[in-house]
Computed example of a mutant assay.
Amino acid sequence: MCRFSVSAYLIAVLLSFSKSKGNPLDSDGKLITTKGNPLDNLEMPAACKDQTFCFEKGDNYPEEKIEKFLQTFPLQKDLGSRIGFSFRDGDKENGNADCPANTTYVDQPIYYIFDESGIVRPVIQSPNRFEQLYSTRWCLNEGYITQNTRHFYPESKRLKKFQVECVTTRLDLDFIVLVEEFDELTYKVVKTIDGIPVCCKCQYHTKKILQ
């Protein structure tokens, strides 16, 4: 009797946890894959595997649903242009000699993100009706530490006291994503699970052992 009670309790916990993640289980604790909202079961395109956001549209982007939704809800009229964070001279700003940065994406649409609940969400993007443009920049040598920095003159005494580490800065930017609730298309404002990289900075540290 005790063993049965524990099993029933574990199934109840699994049901509760799975529902919170958007993955329903049946009464036996098995994942239900034949039903559910398709927008809650999207995956990142292969080109963005293991990433929390994606500039690739992929094959499963719900373009038709987005266009249908925007016919009813003209977000461009209500919200205007959305540029989350932009480097207007991004191609020219490649970081610096100590901490070079990636500048591949400047003012481009992000199509998918992992939201803070760990669910892949399609970002609402339409070239003719509503765009959300973002620029990303991250350290090419994340965590790299140099002592031979150009920030100080070689003869400076400060050079002997500090070292420079390359650190990527992230921002919690808002994304308007498409969701489906009670068989109706709508939108939700969410953030990514760990932010969007926007720049590479040089972070100074005092050396533990002064030479």
Rank of each mutant, 00 (worst) to 15 (best):
E64W: 10
E64S: 01
E64A: 11
E67Q: 10
F69R: 12
L70T: 11
L70R: 06
Q71H: 09
L75R: 04
Q76S: 07
Q76Y: 12
Q76A: 05
K77S: 04
L79Y: 02
L79K: 02
G80R: 00
G80K: 00
R82V: 10
R82H: 12
I83T: 04
G84F: 02
F85R: 12
S86T: 05
S86H: 05
F87R: 05
F87A: 07
F87N: 09
D89K: 03
G90H: 06
G90P: 00
D91H: 15
E93H: 05
E93I: 14
E93Q: 12
N94D: 02
N96R: 03
A97E: 00
A97V: 03
A97K: 12
D98H: 01
D98F: 02
C99T: 01
C99Y: 04
C99K: 08
P100Y: 01
A101W: 14
A101K: 11
A101I: 06
T103M: 07
T104S: 10
D107K: 14
D107I: 11
I110F: 05
I110G: 01
Y111T: 10
Y112K: 08
I113M: 08
I113E: 04
D115T: 06
G118H: 05
I119W: 13
I119P: 04
V120E: 08
V120A: 06
R121S: 14
R121Q: 07
P122D: 11
P122W: 11
V123W: 06
V123I: 06
Q125Y: 04
Q125G: 09
Q125T: 15
S126P: 10
P127I: 01
P127W: 08
P127R: 01
N128A: 11
N128D: 11
R129K: 07
R129W: 13
F130P: 02
F130E: 06
F130R: 00
Q132D: 05
T136F: 09
R137Q: 06
R137H: 09
W138R: 15
W138Q: 10
C139Q: 07
L140E: 05
N141W: 09
E142K: 04
G143Q: 08
G143T: 07
Y144T: 09
I145T: 13
T146D: 15
T146L: 15
Q147V: 04
Q147T: 13
Q147S: 11
Q147G: 12
N148C: 10
R150M: 09
